[in-house]
């Protein structure tokens, strides 16, 4: 009787141990393949296929980095340049959407996972309208309704609007996240698509900060000094936001 009791206890203990191990294994796998969590830039890669059309070449030639970059006025620099920022970002997976929250410029993206399509009247924006689908273990995001912005800080233009879109592919391997950005923009790109791959590291216990950015601080610095101070002054005055009385 006593022996049978101990045998039963032993069997129950083994079962509990097996169940626990199974749960830990499943959790571990989910952790390894989950997009959710904080990520920080490891490698920015480089563009392939970023060949400007004639009109894009003119824009590039005229670009003045000291005044032509909207992010220097605290305007969020749209998808790709936000994604290449040094501050970390967080991904939160929900059933109906995936949230991508960048510390940089406090940018929040909502990737619709329930098949909702963008209404025709939807205004263009720096983050556009994103629809995501899972293709195996890869998340594919198509983003449209984007405002014109820069793909690089050298002023390479992205047209946005109805003809342009950005496709992203997210894949997690252990604590590494690879994101491939592909850009379609017939106005500015010679080829069908330009592509760039960023690699991020998982950042456990990440601390996020509010990204305070005041245009008065951003443009109220010492005048940009070039060989033409009058032009510098005029450009600075044009950029400086009006100060309420």
């Amino acid at each position: 009787m006593k022996q049978q009791f101990f045998n039963n206890l032993k069997n129950i203990s083994h079962s509990i141990l097996l169940i626990t191990l199974s749960i830990l294994t499943i959790n571990g796998y989910a952790q390894e393949t989950s997009l959710s969590g904080a990520w920080v830039m490891d490698d920015r890669g480089s563009w392939t296929g970023l060949l400007p059309t004639n009109s894009a070449q003119e824009v590039l030639a005229a670009f003045d980095p000291s005044t032509g970059d909207p992010s220097m006025r605290c305007v969020a620099p749209a998808l790709i340049r936000t994604a290449e920022s040094a501050p970390p970002f967080e991904i939160i997976e929900q059933n109906h959407q995936i949230l991508i929250i960048y510390e940089s410029f406090n940018v929040v993206r909502r990737v619709n996972m329930d098949g909702r399509k963008a209404p025709e009247w939807l205004p263009l924006s720096p983050v556009g309208y994103s629809v995501g689908t899972w293709q195996g273990d890869e998340l594919v995001i198509e983003t449209t309704h984007l405002t014109p912005h820069l793909l690089n800080d050298d002023g390479f233009p992205f047209d946005g609007g109805s003809d342009a879109r950005i496709i992203e592919k997210y894949k997690v391997t252990g604590d590494r996240l690879e994101v491939e950005f592909s850009v379609e923009d017939p106005t500015n790109l010679q080829g069908e698509m330009a592509t760039r791959i960023f690699t991020y590291d998982r950042l456990p216990d990440a601390m996020f900060f509010h990204y305070h950015c005041d245009p008065l601080d951003a443009t109220g610095w010492r005048l940009p000094t070039t060989e033409n101070p009058l032009r510098d002054l005029l450009q600075w005055l044009e950029l400086r936001p009006s100060i309420p009385e």
Binding site: R44, S71, P77, R81, E84, S85, P87, D153
Partner: peptide, 12 residues
């Protein structure tokens, strides 16, 4: 340190 370039990817 490529992380330092923020959104100024270094071309400036």
């Amino acid at each position: 340190n490529t992380l330092a370039f923020a959104h100024h990817g270094g071309s400036m």
